[in-house]
Amino acid sequence: MTHWIFTEEHELFRKTIKRFLDKEVIPFINEWEENGETPRSLFERLGELGYLGIKFPEKYGGQALDYMMEAVFIEELSKAGSGGVGGAIGAHMGIALTPIWRFGNEMQKETYLTAGIKGEKIAALGITEPNTGSDVSAIKTRAEKQGDHYLLNGAKTFITNGVHADFIVVAAKTSEGPKHENLSLLIVDTDAEGFSVGKKLDKLGWRASDTGEIYFDNLKIPAENLIGVEGEGFRYMMENFQWERLSLALNSIALAEKALESAIQYSKERTQFGQPLQGFQVLRHKMVDMAVDIEKARNLTYRAVYQYNTGSDITTEATMAKAYAGEMVSRVCDQAVQIHGGSGYMMEFPVQRYWRDARIQSIGGGTTQIMNEILTKRLGITVKK
């Protein structure tokens, strides 16, 4: 469905992406899902075509296009039918490379950002830790400054691309200062002594992305790998969360659309009691409700994307979009499975994968409950203690 926020150039780009996905991604989705990872060759191919650098400066190999163009890419990649592939690529270009671009020094951009844009190296973001979840203020991983390097110790979990990443942007405590002022972001090369992957995690959904536990044991990080200013890590993460949450909302909308398309197609083909499923009013109305639910999420999200593209602070709008879309996609995918009946429960039908992939959307990037807490503060309805 076209929308006024997208220009003719955006729509032409959408058609180009679709052709690429139809030929080089969709035929291999089942294989990648079974293997439990998105192959390095896809990162390389996307880098070769310039898709990993849509919003990044030309100086580092990017295309210097707008966020609207990246939104188109995110949507179409999500419609390919694998949340895992979208998650792996999104984690690389959206949440790992972006802090380096926005806050990193020239060396970091030339070394890590350029390699990431080309698809030569895979990136990951390491924030979540065992027993901390969404509470980044409780991060225990420590980076102690010792002369010309930091000594890193700690652990991270649920890290997308964590198993095969070449470098990871890690959030760590660098002081005992006040809460939210003691965190820093540092770039960790995964071939450094002291880095290890605990295990590759087995997930309900997003199976085509590798997710791992990672450990740091007296790992030396050159001081020049500190991103931005020491102690500013929390602020950098919060600023980056705006686009991450919009990306997840876009992902949710695209996945829900895919599920609705599958339900509509199945309702035309499946016959019950002498007529197609579409002949039953209750199912027709159910699919209408699904479409309306998607459209609500789309308008919340597109408005926020448009505002973000103008440079506005869209903390409230992005949080609303992520919260609503993340819950919406589970509702829509659940109904799509229901319309498929017993077939929807069979692994040979992709609708079961959409349902599994949808479940992470209200958890990853901050749970719906965290989003609601942010919104109570933004709207001034917190309870005074």
Rank of each mutant, 00 (worst) to 15 (best):
T190F: 10
E48I: 02
A96N: 03
K23F: 13
A208L: 00
G36N: 05
L151P: 07
P130H: 12
E58R: 15
E327V: 04
I159E: 02
E110F: 11
Q307A: 00
V305F: 13
L46W: 05
V170Y: 11
D166N: 01
G84N: 04
L260S: 10
A336W: 10
N153Q: 07
K140W: 04
Q275F: 10
Y302K: 05
D166A: 00
M238C: 13
N30V: 11
E9I: 09
V72D: 02
C333G: 15
T316R: 00
M346S: 09
G87D: 06
T98N: 06
V383W: 00
Y354C: 12
E295Q: 03
E31A: 14
Q361K: 08
D289P: 01
T190H: 05
K15D: 11
G341E: 06
G50C: 11
F234N: 03
I374K: 03
G47K: 06
E75V: 00
T16E: 14
G81L: 02
E120W: 07
I264A: 15
T310A: 04
E224G: 12
P222T: 14
K322P: 03
L97Y: 01
D148L: 07
A358R: 08
Y60D: 15
Q63F: 13
R303M: 04
S267L: 13
L379T: 04
T382G: 02
E269S: 12
I17E: 05
E239K: 08
Q338V: 07
A171T: 06
I370C: 03
A143V: 04
T271W: 14
M320D: 01
H149T: 10
Q63D: 08
K59M: 15
E34G: 15
W32K: 12
A256K: 02
V288K: 00
F241E: 11
E129D: 10
Q335R: 05
M93P: 03
M371F: 01
E295C: 04
D202G: 09
E144A: 03
Y60C: 14
D135R: 02
D357M: 03
R298E: 08
L246N: 04
A259V: 11
K140M: 07
L52F: 13
E261W: 15
V136P: 12
A172F: 02
I264Y: 15
E193Y: 06
P350T: 10
R284I: 08
Q361H: 10
I221L: 10
T368F: 00
P178Q: 04
F273Y: 11
R235L: 09
Q281V: 15
F158T: 00
S184G: 01
P99Q: 01
K384S: 07
I370E: 05
P27Y: 05
K268M: 14
G228A: 08
V282H: 12
E213A: 06
E37D: 12
S330Q: 10
